[in-house]
Amino acid sequence: MPENPLVPSVATIDRITPETAASDVKTFQVTFDDPAVMERFNYMSGQCAMLSMFGVGESMISITSSPTRRGFLEFSVKRTGRVTDVLHEAVEGQKIGVRGPYGNHFPLEMLKGKNLVFIGGGIGLAPLRSLINNVLDNRKEYGRIDVVYGARSPGDLCFKYEVLENWTKYENAQVHVTVDRGDETWTGPVGFVPAFLEQVNPSPRDAVAVTCGPPIMIKLVLQSLAKLGFTDDQIVTTLEMKMQCGVGKCGRCNVGDKYVCIDGPVFTLSQLKQLPPEF
């Protein structure tokens, strides 16, 4: 285990799963080469890790596996820049660097005993997936579960096996899926997530909503949740900023006096409203 928090440990990509039709999102299942590092990598749903593609750089990625399922880590990554481009070229068995886990996590204590509404858009489902599987693995501790998920097209839906089959099998859990644009195979709802959420119409009573997705979707989902009667304390979301160190030193990911890398990425809407609107 490196002494310097900025130095990653070596890990192996064991499995690569293309998520989308265009393969612009892939899930990488990773284990540390040193079992002691793997053992000590204790994380919570919502936390992130810094992935290193040596020679190119690092990228902060949310951990999409659930801490309830030990022995490996999963990262679902959309191809968006230099580091993720190279990661997408990687093959199974390839070595990468991983350091973390970083940041705060979804407030499980606050969610216990509550009805839960998860609202995700596109690859924004990745951090929610960790939380959803975490919650489902402790099913009895939570109330009703609604997953509202949307993507641009049927081909852009991620984690299809879980979203369309696995999650729906749990008791008192419903999955509602929409796409912005359908295709010849799509028979489900068509429309943007915020409006779809209003149709699903989850009750705010004893409920907490957790949302993650592209900034514009989050912005409109927050409005829809307010319409549905959710208060700012009942809404949890995540922020995304450029990061370099991940440990609250390098400066760039701050929003006001909070560093998203260590104080975030998870915030309730009431916490978010205390921050300057600069994200």
């Binding site: 900025l6 040596f54 020679g55 190119v56 750089g57 690092e58 370099q244 160190c245 030193k249 390098c250 400066g251 760039r252």
Partner: peptide, 20 residues
């Protein structure tokens, strides 16, 4: 404030921390 940056050539390289 700082950034991390890699310089690599032929399968080996260095990672630096530089002021930003």
């Amino acid at each position: 404030c700082f950034l991390l940056t890699d310089e690599a050539r032929g399968g080996e390289g260095l990672r630096f921390r530089c002021w930003d």
